[in-house]
Design a protein around this nucleic acid. Sequence first.
RNA 1: GGCGGGAUUCCCGAGCGGCCAAAGGGGGAAGACUGUAAAUCUUCUGUCUCCGACUUCGAUGGUUCGAAUCCAUCUCCCGCCA
Length: 363
Amino acid sequence: MSCFEILKSSSDTLARRGRLTTRRGTVETPVFMPVGTRATVKAMSPAEMEELGAEIILGNTYHLLLKPGLDIMAKAGGLHKFSNWKRSILTDSGGFQVFSLSKLRKITPDGVKFASHIDGSRFFLGPVESMNTQRVLDSDIVMAFDECTPYPCTCEAAAKSLALTHRWERMSFEQELNPGQLRFGIVQGAMYKDLRIHSARELAAIDFDGYSIGGLSVGEPEELMFDMLDATTPEMPWAKPRYLMGVGTPKQIVEAVARGVDMFDCVMPTRLGRHGSAFVGKDTIPVKAGRYAEDFTPIDENCSCYACRNFTKAYIRHLFNVGEILGVRLVTWHNIHYFLTLMRRIRAAIENDTFAELRREFQ
RNA sequence: GGCGGGAUUCCCGAGCGGCCAAAGGGGGAAGACUGUAAAUCUUCUGUCUCCGACUUCGAUGGUUCGAAUCCAUCUCCCGCCA
């Protein structure tokens, strides 16, 4: 039984309106998945995330493995019970941490030896460990363990890394999971179209439930990222969900949807929210800036989120100015609302076949 | 009325003869952030014709090659005593 259904395709782009079904319910796509690395979407409660309409959030294998650790996660009965999140969860494999914490690693054919960024203690994470951890976390979508190449990256290094990633993905596929857990493979290949195409085809031959595109938005020019997507998505199975990992800005999301991507995640709304920047239109505004000290209008007049319905920029700016936690919460709230609303608009536009129009708005 | 202490660049506050346009905070400005080591980080914050010059450290005058730093007077503050 397929977990993914395409409800409608755009007539003039590769955009698809779909529905992903996990053990915990359905996820309307294209979807944005807020990031909850350490078993919480920073600054937000599960009830608030539900109210915002989030159908699926992320968790992170690496971080949860370090704290609270596998024993506690097992005793807790998995990530859902532990954090009281009842809808779907996708867990990242820890592969990205191999990349982002690269100073502390040693790569072997079976995984990566890390020094914990918290206390320096050593541990090992590879496809076997990552799959086992995600089985214990009992997430609904499990990501294969991969290596994310940096930018720039030589062709030789990228090809070598890709071979290792493919080995790890095959190993990831072979590990046992809990019944109903979905498993996604990850296309890599740095900024080389031929490697990307090769990777997409290689993985398509493995019966993953979905496929993601990793290793993008790592510092490359935006156009290069779009070029990579142009080359990659046509090689990915049409009938299965496609997930662009770690992306991105509203424009990048719209452009990726146009190229046939169904799922996204990014720390942008939550991190920028904590840092005092709010999404408005196709830009962000620095709500915490002094220029708003006497601006008694909402972040966005046209926004229906809790923050915009009830508070002014002057007030939120004041909260940031004095370090009150509510400021962080309100802008995070607004930003998540912004991203989820953007996705609702994208879905509606594909349904009405007016996606091209919406796309123009973000050019 | 007497005796002490003090006045520093937007604010607080270091400095106590040259290395001072003057530490450090705050405030302000600009920017970064993309599968989260991030409620974080970076830069700037006297003026200008800006690799150099000019004007600043309560006011005025003085000592000195040279003063925010020493002396005198004055003006305001803050303690204590009558």
